[in-house]
Design a protein around this nucleic acid. Structure first.
Lengths: 355, 355
DNA sequence: AATTTTCTGATTTACGTACATCAAAAATTC
DNA sequence: GAATTTTTGATGTACGTAAATCAGAAAATT
């Protein structure tokens, strides 16, 4: 049996109340007594029974998720996963709420963070825009004692407690490596379609992609990045223009959420054997993968990210360690041959694959 | 606040004791009264607080893992992950024990299962050999009321409650698809190195590989499968012989655990531009991937599988539902560009990436 | 109607921790 | 050494559920 507070008290030769004072950092314990207790805790290997503690405290963890608004399918899938986690929330003593803010707008995001902090939640998860004022807001949250994790897109030099998301440089490198191999000897330049260079994940993917292409597949021209603002119409227009300007285009890497526009533009072209690698498995990319319009899709599992964010925030709130390996988010690579089954519960988009 | 048993009792107009009898299926409740209580449960949306219940029961879950012995690095990594989960076990009220049995030996496996069942654990996780006698043993476990999950390798038509592992047909298809694309126009046959056709996962990978190659990359000869029994020496010999017999060999798919032998044989050959796809990211395949000897590694995360098996067995023991998406094991695809960092804790092998 | 059997209620203890209160003891200050 | 302050002990209640006991009520049987 694992030791309890009673065992600690007996072993240290003090009362239960004193043990409690030490454990919960309550005042009124002499340093020598505290040391005795901590000694007993150490030697007996006591670990607090969190379930019992939470029961006694009847504690709940209010968590706030701040994510971009708009019709970005990945973000809507993320929102659905957050809601799904919220529906299960009674089981893990957590209550999640969702705040949506306009995409790529750091000032509104800052306001949202400050507002969330003012209600002293147990933790905040935020899809960050990479700007100094956002970092400052997160720093304020930290000072207020509210743990913050960044979700999907990270933030340079901020005090966030943890980043829940994939290694986007590695994702870009992977895309580059696959693109290089898929192209083989085929000549022609490669285009890159992004959402915005204001978000760190897009910048990092681009960086990784260019680096991998340069290292291993030398004489390959990579055209200037097309910024589609994750807007289907704009993305379609940019891609179509690019097709016209470069009849010998060999491949496209779509690293943002402009996939609907991309797919429309490709379909309109007819089969030209262009290699296409995209991000996020949603209904459109899934269909395009099956149809052979897209060769590979890199993916991050929104459900896993949400559950991971919740676990991490709870752990930070309790001041306990997380299982690092469990919280590392994978870069999933999907070909048409390893598509997961579509879940009935998947509303518009999410692919439903997880930890 | 979520409703408690007291609320149910009040709402149904019965006593706490009766509610308890209904909730825990104790005898001595008339059908009409039971209906009243269940009604109240339904309308109030009561869900039992598992933490409090476990506290009251001071219940622990003894779980048994039965895995192959021998120096198969993946299995040793699995064992390490089970041990790691065991070290954390106090937190989740579980106590795991490990039984190792000779690989590919169904009779010994049957004995091990029967022995485990005889001690009435809360659940059993077993790396199955696909044989009828094993299925029968699992059926006996079921009849004894012990939940069973198969781990890594599944079992045809058995009463196992759940399979924790990847979709091996999809894994084989993915390998085929990658192989086809990586080869491009390069001529020459493709070899397949397996461990044993006695385990279902190897059979299914082969099946998927052949199917994908046949469908999408038609005129490509796939040589007869080499069965290396997951033995480094034998595997090396088989591969070397194959090299000699087929100087124009274009690719190798290693779907079992014979990677050390494979890598030795490839290194001995010098650079011949053969495309190699292997399974399981362990120290050898990781090094070979970095060195360019292997092009891609398909992987299943042992840590995730162990945690998933524990979650599922606990859920089955409690008779509650699992989060399906969380328990789906991914097929990880690693290129040299998306290798996860090596964890200091990774003893010989496991790659440490998870849910 | 009397008896037996089956249900139901009331109550208590327990799980491991949190938290509050009040008294007693020890240490500190003057 | 007396007064004060700080530290410690003892005790009780609470969290939500499990499980047991015993008495009493209701139903079924005779």
């Amino acid at each position: 049996m694992r030791p309890t507070v009673h065992d600690i008290a007996a072993s240290a030769g003090v009362s239960l109340a004193t043990v409690d004072r030490v454990l919960n950092r309550r005042p009124g314990v002499r340093a020598v007594t505290r040391a005795k207790v901590e000694d007993a805790i150490e030697t007996l290997g006591y670990v607090r029974d969190v379930a019992a503690a939470n029961l006694a405290k009847s504690r709940i963890y209010p968590l706030v998720f701040i994510i971009p608004a708009g019709d970005n399918p990945f973000m809507r899938g993320l929102e659905a996963e957050i809601a799904a986690a919220g529906a299960r929330s009674s089981a893990d003593r957590t209550r999640v709420s969702i705040l949506t803010v306009p995409a790529f707008d750091s000032m509104v995001l800052v306001e949202a963070i400050d507002k969330a902090v003012s209600e002293f939640p147990s933790g905040i998860a935020v899809v960050a825009v990479d700007a100094p004022e956002v970092a400052a807001a997160i720093e304020r949250a930290r000072l207020a004692g509210v743990p913050v994790v960044t979700l999907v897109s990270d933030l340079a030099a901020s005090g966030r407690d943890h980043f829940v998301g994939i290694d986007n440089i590695a994702a870009g490198r992977t895309a580059g490596s696959l693109m290089g191999r898929f192209l083989g000897d085929r000549a022609g330049p490669v285009a890159v379609l992004a959402g915005s260079m204001l978000v760190r994940d897009h910048r990092e993917r681009l960086q990784g992609f260019i680096a991998a292409m340069a290292e291993d597949f030398e004489p390959r021209v990579i055209l200037d990045v097309l910024e589609g603002q994750d807007d289907p119409m704009l993305a379609e227009e940019l891609v179509a223009t690019c097709f016209n300007a470069h009849p010998d285009l060999a491949g496209i890497y779509s690293l943002g959420a402009g996939n609907r526009g991309l797919i429309t533009a490709i379909s309109a072209q007819g089969p030209r054997g262009i290699r296409v690698i995209a991000h996020e498995l949603i209904s459109h990319t899934r269909a395009a993968l099956k149809a052979g319009l897209i060769d590979a899709v890199l993916h991050q599992d929104a459900g896993h990210e949400v559950r991971s964010a919740i676990r991490v925030l709870k752990a930070k709130a309790d001041g306990v360690a997380v299982i690092e390996a469990q919280e590392r988010i994978r870069i999933d690579i999907f070909l048409k041959d390893n598509l997961p089954l579509e879940q009935p519960g998947d509303l518009p988009d999410p692919s439903g694959q997880d930890d």
